[in-house]
Amino acid sequence: METLTLAVFFIALTAGAYFGMNLLYIKFHYSILMPALTATLLVILFLLLTETPYDTYMIGGQWIDRILGPAVVALAIPLYKQRKLLFDNLVPIFTGTLVGVSIGLFTGFALAKLFGFSEVLVLSLLPKSITSPVAMEIAEQIGGIPSLAAVFVMIAGFSGIIIGPAFLRVLRIETPIGLGMGFGASAHGIGTAKALEYGPREASVSSVAMSLSAVFGSFLAPVLVWLFFL
């Protein structure tokens, strides 16, 4: 009985934090107010203040967590709706994503090694440019820590949209394909929200890049780990 109460309470807490923060984000629309960040911080703050262990929170949290898999499958639908854009630009989009994912995995790996981080941290860091739900699954598969991976994904996303606009200008990226690919392949969902500020075409390319990165990353991350850790 008590378990049920706790479960309902933590589900309500998470959903409440999300919807509350979502309203705030819709009102002010600063990237830093994205509910994925603010609602997570609110829940963490609550757990810290009440000294609630994570395992207790997950009595309720796991029920929300379980919808994540089906939600990733649902990404196929926007990808399908963008199929004309995807097939018309198949070579640039495929190659760009492949190059982006490879660079992301390899430089993440090389730099983290260079700084001497432990293997489990390196493995959690690898999928940082891939959308959180998939990054967490990849991290788990290759022996990293999923929740750390999710935080790394968020740091990557925010650094991408904060530095990205100036950086892409310096690189003379000005086509919708170039801009969308840059944001989507490096900063996933957060980048796609930013790409929308440039225009609908940039956002579409970005969301295609995000989904494809997730697919390519799922293939390539285990290969990289197999190459370097065995």
Binding site: P92, I103, L111, F115, I173, A185, A187
Partner: peptide, 19 residues
């Protein structure tokens, strides 16, 4: 630092190649 550097390199690679 690692995350920022690697993210920017990813962005440059994907954007330059596709454009």
């Amino acid at each position: 630092v690692v995350l920022i550097l690697s993210t920017l390199l990813t962005m440059a690679g994907a954007a330059l190649t596709s454009q």
